[in-house]
Structure formats: structure tokens, C-alpha cells
């Protein structure tokens, strides 16, 4: 197998472990809320965004109007607009068709691992990107399908701490960006703003509102001397 593709697929290992409980849970909850196994697989294969899929089935089970379910999925996934703007800069070598394909796979870990890959000085190739993306994608669909078939056999995930694996993985990713300029002020601003927004506005808006607070801080703070783009800005 192609080594770039394999390297990307290997990067998916901790990601897949961390979403095992969520895939199984989505399948089980989907069936509980009146979806067929086919619907569960269709949702995972076409939406491919765990948190928004959970919100979708929850609302579906409550008989909420279809347009409102679609709007809620859009709201939960709104953070991807930021990912898309940021990672697009790393895809200059991709053709338009390759970009259109690649953006379909742009999940939280896909974005973060790709940024890490570029940060480590490696080129973002389509083969590496798809090795990571396809591994996540196929495992996610398979897990959701298993959850739909055997969901009732799953023991309480809270008791085993399985519900907390994703925050642990996300914190690991936060830490992996600690060499970036303004890292600490950005995570403090985003984290604090997200907790405030979580109380005042509620989920899922705390994600986009918190993120915007950190990003705005990075925009207004004086660029740190030494980093290439920043030094360029100061000389203008």
C-alpha cells in the first residue's frame, strides 16, 4: 500500500478508539428514536459528523419540524466554516475536484491532524489526507451500523468513562498546538468564552462563540516578532 496513505491511516488509530462508544451510541439511539438501520447508515455515510447526528436524532424523536432539524444540524456544524477557511490554505496543490472531495471528510480530528501534519513541516498530500479520512469514515459507518444492530447489548458507557474519551482526545490535540504563536491567550479566551456562552446562550452555540473570541484575540493582539507572516505584517 502507498506509504503516504498508510501513514494517514495510522494517524486515525487513537481517533477511531475515541469514537467507538459514540458510533455505537449513535446507532443505538437512532433505532430507539425510530430510525431504521438503513437510516442510521445513511446518516453516518452522508452527514459524517457525530455531534450533529446525535442532535438530529434527538430532535427527530421529539417530532420537531424537518426544516428545524436541518437548521440545528447546520448550527452544530457551523465550526466547520472556520476549519474550511483555515485548511483550504494548505490545499493549494489540490485540484478543484480533489478539494470538493477532501472537504466532505473535514471532521474535527481530520482538521486538527492535518494542521498538525503541516505544522510538523510535512506537505499535505491527498493520499495522506484520504488515508486518514477514509479510515475514520469507514470505521464510523461500521460502528454506527453495529450500534443500530446490537445497541441494546451495550452496557452503560458512563460507568466505564467511555463518554469522556472524546474530550481527552480533543485536549491532546489542543496541547499539540502549544508551539503556535499566542497559543495560551487563545485557549484561555476561547475556553472562558465558551463556558460563559454555554451558560448564557447554550449548546451548540458555545463552540462557535467561544472559538470566535479566541480567533479575534489572535487577530487584534500585536503579531509576535520572529514568526514569518507576523514580521511581514509589521514591515508594511
Amino acid at each position: 500500500m502507498d506509504s503516504e496513505f498508510r501513514d494517514g491511516a495510522r494517524t486515525a488509530l487513537p481517533i477511531v478508539i475515541s469514537f467507538i462508544p459514540f458510533g455505537l451510541l449513535f446507532g443505538a439511539l437512532g433505532v430507539d428514536n425510530g430510525l431504521t438501520s438503513f437510516d442510521v447508515v445513511l446518516a453516518s455515510a452522508t452527514i459524517f459528523a457525530g455531534a450533529s447526528q446525535m442532535v438530529g436524532i434527538e430532535l427527530y424523536g421529539q417530532k420537531v419540524a424537518p426544516w428545524l432539524i436541518v437548521l440545528s444540524i447546520f448550527a452544530v456544524n457551523f465550526r466547520h466554516v472556520l476549519y474550511s477557511a483555515a485548511i483550504g490554505r494548505r490545499m493549494r496543490r489540490f485540484s478543484a475536484g480533489q478539494k470538493a472531495l477532501a472537504f466532505f471528510f473535514l471532521t474535527d480530528p481530520q482538521f486538527a491532524e492535518s494542521e498538525k501534519h503541516v505544522g510538523a513541516g510535512k506537505a499535505l498530500t491527498l493520499r495522506w489526507y484520504m488515508g486518514l479520512g477514509l479510515t475514520n469514515y469507514l470505521c464510523w459507518i461500521g460502528l454506527c451500523w453495529l450500534g443500530a444492530l446490537f445497541g441494546r447489548l451495550i452496557p452503560d458507557p458512563h460507568a466505564f468513562g467511555l463518554d469522556f474519551l472524546l474530550p481527552i482526545y480533543f485536549l491532546g490535540l489542543v496541547m499539540s498546538f502549544r508551539k503556535r504563536p499566542l497559543w495560551l491567550p487563545v485557549i484561555v479566551a476561547s475556553g472562558a468564552a465558551s463556558v460563559v456562552a454555554w451558560h448564557l446562550v447554550g449548546s451548540p452555540w458555545h463552540v462557535s462563540l467561544g472559538a470566535i473570541a479566541g480567533i479575534l484575540l489572535a487577530v487584534v493582539l500585536p503579531p509576535r516578532a520572529g514568526s514569518g507572516a507576523a514580521a511581514e505584517g509589521a514591515s508594511r
Binding site: R79, L82, Y83, A85, A86, D108, F111, A112, E115, F170, L171, L173, V174, F177, R180, P181, L182, W183, V186, I187, A189, S190, G191, A193, S194, H206, V207, G210, A211, I212, A213, G214, I215, L217, A218, A229
Partner: peptide, 10 residues
């Protein structure tokens, strides 16, 4: 450049 840490922190 701040997007990954900003979103993941939330």
C-alpha cells in the same frame, strides 16, 4: 492560525 486551538478549547 488560531482556529485549531480556539475551536478545540471550546
Amino acid at each position: 492560525d488560531a482556529v485549531p486551538a480556539a475551536v478545540l478549547a471550546t
